[in-house]
């Protein structure tokens, strides 16, 4: 059995060695003409702005926390799954083992349901939509658009020309369309 894990160690060592062997082989031929520009981080052709090691979104932390719960769950479920069938077949455990498994999964599913209900599984959280409530006191001069209090506009036939003292009647005809600049002839 120790042979097995020694084998794995050798596999890891060979993998690492393969990388460095290839790098050394390439070093014989590959050019190396570094310039200060070449050493700058790639930011789509711009000069890099600020540090690359920026503060990170808290949502990734939540994902990691949720994962820990389930990672542990899988680690516990693996031995249960392996022995369940054979142990049940030769009578070492009864149906209770299955019930226990269901309970274990059920408790963790409760945890998932809790996180789900709290909204921590949502990547995009619409805080702004939840936080916005119209103020109970009306703002002076504020009118919602479209105004919910106003009656819906009634459309009856073509609109008549509006006679107004401040605004001339809407011009009729194609020739009166406002033209920007001088039209080319």
């Amino acid at each position: 059995m120790y042979f097995d894990y020694a084998n794995v160690l050798v596999f890891l060592a060979v993998g690492i060695g393969f990388v460095f062997f290839n790098m050394a082989l390439g070093a014989l031929v590959r050019p190396s003409l570094p310039t200060p520009e070449q050493k700058t981080p790639y930011e789509c052709g711009e000069d890099p702005i600020g540090d690359a090691w920026v503060n990170f979104d808290i949502r990734y932390y939540t994902v990691a926390l949720v994962y820990i719960v389930f990672g542990v769950e899988i680690a516990f479920l693996f031995p249960w799954a392996v022995v369940l069938k054979s142990a049940f077949a030769d009578g070492r455990i009864g149906g209770m083992a299955f019930v226990e498994g269901v309970l274990f999964v059920g408790v963790l599913f409760l945890g998932l349901a809790y996180v789900w209900a709290k909204g921590d599984l949502d990547w995009v959280k619409s805080y702004s939509a939840k936080a916005y409530r119209p103020s109970p006191t009306p703002t002076p001069g504020f009118r919602a658009f479209p105004d919910p209090a106003a009656a819906p506009p009634v459309v009856t036939g073509p609109p008549a020309a509006v006679e107004s003292s401040t605004r001339p009647a809407a011009p009729v005809g194609a020739g009166a369309a406002p033209s920007h600049g001088t039209p080319r002839s």
């Binding site: 596999f11 993998g15 690492i16 393969f18 990388v19």
Partner: peptide, 14 residues
């Protein structure tokens, strides 16, 4: 980093 990545891939094959 590439060495670790490749080594883990080879160890998976084991």
């Amino acid at each position: 980093a590439p060495a670790l990545v490749l080594a883990s891939a080879i160890a998976m094959f084991a």
